[in-house]
Design a protein around this nucleic acid. Sequence first.
DNA 1: TTTACCCTCCCCATAAATAGGGAGTTATAA
DNA 2: TTATAACTCCCTATTTATGGGGAGGGTAAA
Lengths: 237, 237
Amino acid sequence: MKTGLQDFLEALQEVENFEEFQDATLKLRDLLGVSHVVYHWVNSVGERFGAGTYSTEWVDRYLEKDYLRIDPVIFGCFQRFTPVSWKQLDWSTKAAKAFFLDALDYGVGNQGYTIPIRGPKGQFALFTLNHTTTDEAWERLIARHARDLVVVAHEFNKKALYFESQKAAQPSVSLSPREATAITHIAKGLSRSQAAAEMGISEHTLRVYIESARHKLGAMNTTHAVARALSLGLIIV
Amino acid sequence: MKTGLQDFLEALQEVENFEEFQDATLKLRDLLGVSHVVYHWVNSVGERFGAGTYSTEWVDRYLEKDYLRIDPVIFGCFQRFTPVSWKQLDWSTKAAKAFFLDALDYGVGNQGYTIPIRGPKGQFALFTLNHTTTDEAWERLIARHARDLVVVAHEFNKKALYFESQKAAQPSVSLSPREATAITHIAKGLSRSQAAAEMGISEHTLRVYIESARHKLGAMNTTHAVARALSLGLIIV
DNA sequence: TTTACCCTCCCCATAAATAGGGAGTTATAA
DNA sequence: TTATAACTCCCTATTTATGGGGAGGGTAAA
């Protein structure tokens, strides 16, 4: 099994396009003997990138029902650092229970293991294994592969990033030092006058920085600018 | 070497306190034959946790000089998803060059490899290998261990999280659904009246949510509240 | 050398946010 | 059942932010 994963990682390195990426999830599913393998990626602008073995019906339904806002896997992983077995998540709300039953209907297994991977600029990716089995069997499988899966998840992520960087070449915003400092102070909760005093400049000047940053960030107001600067990792509060 | 790392990981699992954690960095340094191994952790409130083989003189100087704001490793890793060799970073500014020379003076090697690990609530950790050698030798070493290092970094991180969760038991803020929705709309750049219209409530009511969230978050104004909610991972824009 | 971007300062009118207060209804949990 | 918290609505006055405009000096790259 170990060497199987090694070979798989070698093959994953060679992946050149989305179809091969998609194929890789299928191969890994068969290699590990689970029901589903899914890689899913979201950034701060709401762009998505995903590949996996879920049925297209389920993916469509997921999007249509906006399950992103209900799914305890998404929220749970957003709140934690480390990989998580789905059983550990909070499925107590009515919406979550209904979602789980609906997922089962669409061929999603009752057991899951998801590794969250976070990046700058609000990037957030999930790598998920899914299967239908007992709690004990699932825990054994996870325990056996946990460390390798971290590596596999990161390799998938590396490939996904590579694709995104190719097609995007995003017009990355950058703030001037003073703009960044000004926005940072505002993000810390200082008022304009306080921030200006902190930076030793007039309040008028500070306003110019904020306005300038706001335009660069395409933000509608100061609060929006701060939110975007934070999401984009342009400032560290 | 492979089995050496396996054994190391087993030993790391057993670590119970900070001294053993610190010892683990020493052991890994010797195992890999590099000059330094460092784990460093920061959260949104500016709390720190770190262990490593840098001299205390260097650590003190780093803090005293506020190098956190200059260090290209910090900023570079904050901007990217994947591990990075220090050579790939931007050392072109005067401040960065001065910082690098100063670091060499304090026994830091000329080569580095840093793995960024991000978590919810603004948690951000760095796992760094450092050594004095040629570019080629360093790239070879990294290529050989890259995958294992991802696992090692995450295991260090897991331990660090465990310590933090023990001592902290943080008074975690939680927003009510309407509060979260309201703050999310504001973070997206909507004005109060727009957000209220979006939620189908009066602007007065929306204001109550914002104010309530602001108090819960200990924020001085709406912008601050949005910044904190984002940093804490309480909202997804 | 020109172009471009950054830093600094100022004015004015309007729009929006803030800081207090109070009060009633519905769920959820103890 | 009874708290507790969440959700909804309203008032007034004051402070603060916004959206335009213009202008001069510095530095660094093309």
